[in-house]
Design a binder for these strands. Structure first.
Lengths: 167, 167
DNA sequence: ACCTAGGTGATAGTGATTATCATCTGGTTA
DNA sequence: TAACCAGATGATAATCACTATCACCTAGGT
């Protein structure tokens, strides 16, 4: 089997492992280990729902009634920046439309959000043979390739040369 | 070569073909062919930028100075509904976070937006061998599989039985 | 030409996210 | 251990993309 739903039972041990390393990873990223951050990563690791900020807020509030929604938004963003979390899509800011309705996928520059179409016939073939996925009926798909475009890559290289930190 | 940027030169002929069929496709979808809709699909087909509503608005305004931004939003949405356009991601409404930072992909229910993790080792392998893509430096990727979850599929089936239109 | 369902423009409203800023605190240093 | 301060937080205002509302308009069938 080539496509496989990730087993929910793996989450417990995975979360425990990630949590045990969290403080060290924060410090490595130059971040203070605060109770709020701990609560937020804990809530995120404990959920298989790919939650939005408000869901994390609701969960965390039970233990930290004074936490601010702004802190939740900020912290989730920060966690993504140090690689302790990810977004399901990096294109959630606003709707992007495409007039090309033939099957294709996208490369997205992680800095400037420039998007270009790409074709991956092998991927389309792989998915064409998959109509069910656990409890899901497959309808279609779209691959988002994260990349750095030439222009942004050049800017970053220049910034590095003049001594600015990469991130 | 397995991954390939779509050639920009294809857009001209493709847009012309789509435009010539547009009126017929609107009527097939039960939509009136209005100057605004024509201008919007034209602007969309003429752009390789995967534009946001405001960019389409700006482009269309040059020929239709009285068009409303609301019309642009509505029309782009309508075009997606009848299959004349698509969104780059269906998850643009709000940020969804994932605590799982191991390489994986997602199945998304098109109705309720439930998301589950999936693993596609063959896709990861395919992409691991691709560090450049035209002017882009590849960093990672995320596949969004569009699907219908069991619950929503059941609801839809039931609605059909009781005579409600599917869409 | 006439009718009407559906489309549009103007604008108010909503919901998610970000900005601002005064206050607080983790973690380093004396 | 206390004192310090860069960075973190909470409260709240502001912003931004998008949707709802509604009076008026028009495409397309009669």
């Amino acid at each position: 089997m080539e496509l496989q739903l990730v087993n929910e039972r793996r989450r417990g041990p995975y979360a425990a492992k990630r949590l045990s390393e969290f403080a060290a990873r924060c410090r490595r990223g130059g971040l203070a280990v605060t109770p709020q951050r701990l609560a937020i990563i804990k809530a995120l690791l404990g959920s298989g729902e790919h939650p939005r900020a408000d869901a994390i807020f609701a969960a965390v509030r039970m233990q930290h009634p004074h936490i601010s929604l702004a802190t939740v938004h900020r912290t989730l963003e920060t966690l993504c920046e140090i690689g302790e979390a990810r977004k399901v899509t990096m294109l959630h800011d606003s709707a992007r439309y495409d007039g090309n309705i033939t099957p294709h996928h996208h490369v997205v520059c992680v800095k400037c959000r420039r998007i270009r179409d790409i074709e991956i016939p092998r991927l389309d073939r792989l998915l064409a043979g998959q109509s069910e996925l656990g409890e899901f009926t497959v309808l279609g798909s779209s691959l988002e390739i994260h990349a750095l475009c030439e222009e942004c890559g050049a800017k970053r290289a220049k910034a590095n040369r003049t001594g600015k930190p990469r991130r």
